Every structure is written in C-alpha cells, then in structure tokens.
Amino acid sequence: MPSNDILVNGGTNNAEKKLEEFEAYMMCVINDYSVSPDIFVEGTSLMKWWDDYKAHKGIAYVYKFAQYRNNKTYESYK
C-alpha cells in the first residue's frame, strides 16, 4: 500500500501514478475475492489509508475504488 506520506506531502506525478495503480490493483483483488474481508474492518491500515486517500483526492473524485468505499459495498464482501 502506498505510504500516507505521499498523500500528506502532496506527492509527485509519479506518486499520483503509483496511487492510481494501487487503486486499480485493489479493485482487481477485491473483484477476485483474493483478500480477506478483515481488511475492511474499521481501523485497519487499509481503511485508514482509504480515508486519507479520499481526503487527498477530494469529494468530487469518482473511481470504482472510491465508489466501492462511498457506497459501502465492502460491507457485503465475503
């Protein structure tokens, strides 16, 4: 998972690309059911990172990964 330091410090174009690649990767492993549902428990590193990422991208940012979180689709992940 990309460091939250990238988010806090604004990142570079390369950092933004890596964040977007991670976002796409996460949707692939979620869609393939390759990860444990435990990663979606509030307080886990992924959920904390997700909150920081959402704040970094802004409220208008819409991507499958963001929609997945915003719609709470992860709650039915098993």
Rank of each mutant, 00 (worst) to 15 (best):
A15H: 13
Y63T: 14
T73C: 05
Q67I: 12
E21P: 01
A15S: 14
R69L: 08
K48Y: 01
K18L: 11
P2C: 10
A66W: 06
Y74A: 04
E21L: 13
Y61A: 12
S3A: 03
A24T: 09
E75P: 01
W49P: 00
Y53F: 10
T12Q: 05
P37D: 08
T44P: 00
D38M: 12
E23I: 09
D52S: 15
F65H: 02
K78C: 02
P2I: 05
K54S: 14
M1Q: 02
F65D: 05
E16H: 14
Q67F: 10
M1I: 05
E21S: 12
N70G: 08
Y53S: 02
G11I: 09
P37L: 11
Y77G: 02
V8D: 11
E42C: 07
Y63C: 14
N14G: 14
Y68R: 03
T73R: 06
D52I: 10
F22V: 05
H56G: 12
P37W: 04
Q67D: 15
V35Q: 02
K64G: 14
Q67R: 12
Y53G: 03
K17C: 12
R69C: 11
N71W: 13
I39A: 00
R69W: 11
Y68W: 03
N9L: 09
K57S: 03
K48H: 04
W50A: 13
M27C: 00
E42K: 13
G43H: 06
D52Y: 12
K64W: 13
Y63R: 13
V8I: 09
M47P: 04
A55T: 14
F40C: 02
N31A: 12
W49A: 00
S45L: 07
Y77N: 00
D51V: 03
V8P: 04
G58D: 01
D5F: 15
E42I: 03
E23K: 08
Y61G: 04
N4V: 15
Y25P: 01
L46Y: 07
K78N: 08
K18H: 11
S36C: 10
G11Y: 12
N13C: 12
N13H: 14
A15N: 07
F22C: 10
H56F: 15
S3T: 08
V62H: 10
N9K: 11
W49K: 01
E42G: 11
K57R: 13
M26G: 00
S3N: 08
N31E: 11
W49F: 09
A55V: 13
K54I: 15
A66L: 06
Q67L: 14
G11R: 07
S36Q: 08
M26K: 00
N13Y: 11
D32G: 13
N14V: 13
S76P: 02
I59W: 14
Y33R: 15
K57I: 07
Y61N: 09
F40K: 05
P2M: 11
K57N: 07
E23W: 10
E16K: 15
D5R: 15
V29H: 03
E75V: 10
M26E: 00
E20C: 11
Y74Q: 02
C28V: 12
G11C: 07
G43N: 08
G43I: 04
N14C: 12
D52C: 12
G11A: 07
R69Y: 13
D51L: 06
Y74D: 06
N70I: 10
Y68A: 00
V29M: 06
D5A: 15
N70F: 04
H56Q: 11
F22K: 10
N13T: 13
I30G: 02
Y68T: 01
P37V: 05
Y74I: 05
V35I: 09
H56D: 14
